[in-house]
Amino acid sequence: MKPEAHGGDRLRMAALAGRAPDSLLDFSVNVRPEGAPEFLRLALCRALDHISAYPSPHAEEAMEAAARVYGLPADCFVFGNGTNELIHLLARVLKEDGVPCAAVIEPAFSEYALACGLAGLEVRHLDCGVRRDGDSDEDMLRQLLSLLADVPPRAAVWLANPGNPSGSFLPPASCRRLLEARPDLLWIIDEAFAAYAGPDDVSSLIPQLPDNAVLLRSLTKFHAVPGVRLGYMVTQEERARRWRGRLPAWSVNAFALAAAQAVLEDTSDFAERTRDENNRR
């Protein structure tokens, strides 16, 4: 398999193994093993009532739901057909905006570099390694800033927080200090696994949304619906409005829209129970 190839491609893996797709256990993806929660399954079933009508052009209902959750203007949110679509959108608009290069903090999701390469951006791979026992947040901040010393102003930096597969995590206060130390950079923070680190107030930058940040969120991992394809990004209003205009209408289908609203409006104890279950493993 090519190094940039994704996990989750059961047809290809089955062909390589000479087995039926349903006979394989796929350990190449990090998705909640219990599958999607019941409240989300019900929302997807109810969405069947809406498949005869076009969904809202840019998932406006989800934008409003996110605005209520985070106390931000709805225009700060951009929803797409999975975070992967938004990663490629970002790479294209960064190139158009004249960003000098994209720095990827490794180890990282291969799609960051792949998308930037396809867009014609120079990619710099900066190896941060795996956070060692005993390393403090301050140690990690120093290491990251040292890695970025030669990255020019106006560059974009891709950083997963929490990191996958490293597991490195900077709490919001420390992450904000990192962004403030290099305000000349555009920081793209992938929070795909943030829900596992705790509620948003202790795991996410969204409630404080720095001006030089683009935050990515996904329903794939914590809510186990990679097949639905739903992700969103959060950034400053003018930037989000401009980038949202680069997406085709109806990129978020009726099922993905229903899933987004169900997750954002969920008041059950699902998230707390899932974190507890994960911590006991």
Rank of each mutant, 00 (worst) to 15 (best):
E272H: 08
R177N: 05
F77T: 03
A149P: 02
A192I: 04
S136Y: 01
A155E: 02
A254D: 03
P165I: 04
H50Q: 12
P210Y: 04
L185A: 07
A256W: 06
M233A: 11
K95R: 13
E4C: 04
A14S: 09
L148K: 12
A173E: 13
A15P: 03
E237S: 13
A91L: 01
D266H: 08
G35E: 08
R92F: 05
G120Y: 09
A259D: 03
G120D: 05
D75V: 06
Q208E: 11
A259E: 01
N84R: 13
E96W: 01
R124Y: 00
L186T: 15
S28P: 00
D184E: 14
S136W: 02
M233W: 12
G117R: 14
P73M: 07
R12Q: 13
D184Q: 09
A213W: 04
C128V: 00
V228Q: 01
A173T: 07
P21D: 07
L209R: 09
V214K: 05
L25N: 02
E277A: 14
G167T: 08
M140N: 12
V234S: 04
D127M: 06
N84S: 10
G129C: 10
R19A: 15
P183M: 10
P73N: 08
P33W: 09
V234H: 03
C101S: 10
R280W: 04
A224D: 09
E138Q: 09
L209M: 11
H50L: 09
A36R: 13
L216Q: 07
R177W: 01
Q143F: 00
E106A: 14
R132T: 02
D49E: 15
D9M: 07
I188S: 02
T83S: 15
V104N: 08
R273G: 02
D49G: 13
N253L: 04
P57H: 12
V123L: 04
V157C: 07
S146D: 12
R244D: 03
A195G: 02
D201V: 03
